[in-house]
Design a protein around this nucleic acid. Structure first.
Lengths: 354, 354
DNA sequence: CCCCGGCATGTTACCGGTATCTGCCTTGGT
DNA sequence: ACCAAGGCAGATACCGGTAACATGCCGGGG
């Protein structure tokens, strides 16, 4: 009466259903499905057939509870809108795909309270490891991470003290490097256009490193402007126009990311400004936003694929082995400048008089 | 001996630890932590203090197993590299944020076998619902979805029969609409540039609708080119150059997405081609890739925010109520054309002879 | 011919919570 | 002063698997 002939899925299937269908114990079915322990070929075949026929899907909830093992890795990032993070994620997935581990993504929107909440949710699933962007977390978040007793890798940034391991670049150094390259190229009147500072610590650190390097040579930012809300070409465009109008002497604009940087570049092209002669531009992150464009923006690559890969490798290694070595590993990668077509290599020679 | 004074997290905490610390039963702690059932204020306070002090994080694995409820919604998409999907995801998250449900993302890379695997993994966590892109799935995948006994919403596409509910647009219609708009504007020699066809069913359907509408007016695609691998501006650029060289008579190029479309636009600008007079261009998806750019590409918006929102709402409603009504709901949204600056509104008047 | 060892399978005791029922004690109506 | 009702807390039985141990059966060496 209640049992339909084939599919209609009344009550979810359990090991018991498969065991009854194949005439062996639940334990044996479990062994077959996990490929663990010795099972005769004939039994194995019988069980697999029955499982397939029923359409049985194991219940990981029960499995995880019983085995005290959860093959999930929490990956916590600020945003999916900035292509950098999907790219890091892709690199992480590629590594984890070769292990039994599986990434689970949480997004914080750059808000510490969201981060805390997301982290709490994630940890309540008892993942095998955590990969989390940034070194700045609320005290509660830090306490949770420390207390979780699982490997934690903080990524993207190395300017600070990690809870456990970290993989990333020094954004202060990145800012300094860019400042030095700019000054070496002979630019002197430098402006900065940046994002919602208080929450994006890495952008802030780049800015700090940048101004610090300028100061060392006795220079100061000539003009600057900050905004909040998401980055967009339009925003970069209008901000650039405003800055150039307000401070016509500016000969270089450093942007906190490529998106607004490209916006600025578009403005310059439209306005007929000589780039990189009269004005130089640089962004950050080497987003191949305009890879087919005639002029490539100077930028800096943070090695996000490698960051993702290394982070995932650390987690994988530590989960496999019993959490011993590799704990507290600190990997600082070197950002690489790409001059593109908006940052000249040396002080303007003949084509731009003094 | 084994117990450190404060934090060091030996063995993961359980309800029992909190119950001992606060002198009540585990059951009461559970009630307090879930805010369910009657507990006196004094007890509640005592328990909360103890929990906070210990840094207790509930174990959802155990909770889910016991309560037979898992507040996860599986969201399965083909890629994170195409910004459309992060955007759909964001819309889904916004809706689910106001419910106890939580999205969990799986990425298939457009591969049916990956989809099958990802789906299997997801279902083994016994989620409360599934949101999955597309209507094309392997038989095994369909069987799993049907057998899971949970609400399933297939999104993005409505050209086909859903397993349960669906929310999206008809890509055939989208292709037709664009073809009609193009023909009405007087273009006649139309070329098509597309992505890896066999796997991207929606792009294929747009193409089919497109050619069908052309055929109805006695027109045929003049030239076409397909490629595989990810979309990029550079690819759109070079493909466009190739097509125009091979078939100089072409007066319109329809792209399967905005990214290669914008690449084509860049080529035309560089080559000094009169757009949209001599040549018209259109893409798909209204990616605000170049929102700050001087010329906006004609494109079509599929309403991805609304798709995500409606899909999440269906799941939320059905999980909340007992899976009754709203089952099998089919929502077809209307794509909207945006002409941008690369598709003229009417046949060329004086500025382009006949 | 018996015993031992190893393979193939079954049995038992959890994993860490939650649903449900029970029981105590207080409170208020009459 | 007594009893019903309700507030509050505890006891118990699972949820669906898995670890660890137990068992049965078989063949081979002594």
């Amino acid at each position: 009466m209640t049992d339909e002939p084939h599919k209609p899925a009344k009550r979810p299937l359990t090991l018991r259903d498969v065991s009854e269908a194949s005439g062996v114990s639940e334990m044996t079915v479990s062994r077959v499905l996990r490929n663990r322990g010795d099972v005769s070929d004939s039994t194995r075949a019988r069980v697999l057939t029955a499982a397939k026929e029923l359409g049985y899907v194991p219940n990981k909830i029960a499995g995880a509870l019983a085995s005290q093992r959860v093959n999930l890795v929490a990956v916590i990032i600020p945003s999916l809108g900035n292509m950098v993070f999907p790219q890091v994620l892709t690199a992480i997935s590629e590594v984890l795909d070769q292990t039994p581990l599986q990434p689970v993504v949480g997004v914080t929107n750059y808000l510490p309270e969201r981060e805390e909440k997301v982290l709490y949710e994630m940890l309540s699933w008892r993942p095998s490891g955590v990969i989390i962007a940034g070194l700045e977390h609320s005290d509660a978040s830090k306490a949770m991470l420390r207390g979780a007793g699982i490997p934690v890798v903080e990524i993207m940034d190395t300017d600070g003290t990690p809870i456990d391991s970290m993989v990333g670049i020094s954004h202060r150094r990145a800012g300094r490097m860019m400042a030095e390259a700019i000054m070496k190229a002979g630019y002197r009147k430098i402006a900065f256009l940046g994002t919602k500072m208080p929450l994006d610590h890495r952008a802030r650190k780049r800015f700090e490193g940048f101004t610090e390097a300028l100061a060392k040579k006795g220079l100061e930012i000539v003009d600057q402007e900050f905004y909040d809300g998401g980055s967009s070409l339009a925003k970069g465009r209008e901000m650039t126009a405003r800055v150039l109008e307000r401070s016509p002497e500016v000969d270089f604009v450093y942007y906190s990311n490529d998106k607004i940087g490209v916006g600025g570049l578009l403005h310059c092209l439209d306005a007929g400004i000589d780039v990189p002669g009269r004005l130089g531009l640089a962004g950050f992150n080497n987003i191949s936003l305009l890879d087919g464009f005639s002029k490539r923006l100077a930028t800096m690559d943070s090695g996000r694929e490698e960051i993702g890969r290394r982070a995932a490798e650390i987690i994988a290694a530590r989960v496999e082995a019993g959490s011993d070595e590799m704990a507290g590993e600190r990997i600082e990668l070197s950002p690489t400048i790409s001059r593109g077509d908006t940052l000249r290599a040396r002080p303007a020679g003949g084509d731009y008089p003094e």
